[in-house]
Design a protein around this nucleic acid. Structure first.
Lengths: 121, 121
DNA sequence: TCCGGTAGGGAAAAATTTATCACTATGGGT
DNA sequence: ACCCATAGTGATAAATTTTTCCCTACCGGA
């Protein structure tokens, strides 16, 4: 795993939260798990654009950080299911709020980014 | 400015939000501006670890995205003040919630990261 | 034996973000 | 002319994250 060179600032809650959950896919991941996609295979299909590799990595980090738990069933083919822990569930309201904010803001962002020239200020 | 090679997924509110606000400092930045640090100089002093360069870059992006506004006073030395727009203010409750979550989660994260060996699963 | 589906990981490239350093510009004071 | 403080930018290095490609392992069926 990658060894951090710039230390985390534990005095800032925002930095802590970003460290745990501030990556491209983790919010979506937690969201989809909450919505019922428990198996890695389901998550890959549910989340548009994610790859198996990143999924595994993020799931592993979320698990280590204690936001999701994992159950392995001794079946064939192998079945693994992830679920939110209490800490993970405590993020759901935040995730929902951020998601909604993003959807509302989307059109404005698109407008700004898709004009070649910078907006006249 | 950096030219994105992997496009944004506008169908996912979470991705949109991350694009606008998911960087190391932007949450802190908006938070500090809301708390009254209006000038760049104040922000550098208020935010532990940020550099002038990144501050300028993030302020510029936030401004382009319409989350903060900017006022230039023709004084000497030059005085510039930033303020939250309506869109920026709409993020404050979220930021506060995330900050609080991070502070509550901090000890657990620290525990996990500061033991050399991986926790026994 | 080879192939299927499942879950997981190593290594390196590519993408992206952040840090570092060195500038520009303004106008006042010494 | 030089130094101060302010705000801002360009170029590049360094750090970090994400992608891509390929391999392991398990076990059942053809």
């Amino acid at each position: 795993m990658y060894q951090r060179k710039i230390p985390i600032d534990y005095s800032c809650g925002l930095n802590i939260a970003m460290e745990v959950v501030g990556s491209k896919w983790k919010f979506c991941l937690l969201d989809e798990i909450a919505k019922g996609a428990k198996r890695p295979r389901d998550l890959v299909q549910a989340i548009n654009g994610i790859t198996r590799r990143v999924l595994q990595k993020d799931l592993r980090e979320l698990e280590m950080h204690g936001l999701v738990g994992k159950t392995v069933y001794a079946e064939v083919p192998l079945r693994v299911e992830y679920h939110l822990t209490t800490a993970g569930e405590s993020l759901l309201p935040l995730i929902a709020a951020i998601d909604q904010w993003g959807l509302e803001f989307g059109p404005q962002l698109r407008n700004i980014l898709e004009r070649k020239a910078m907006p006249v200020l």
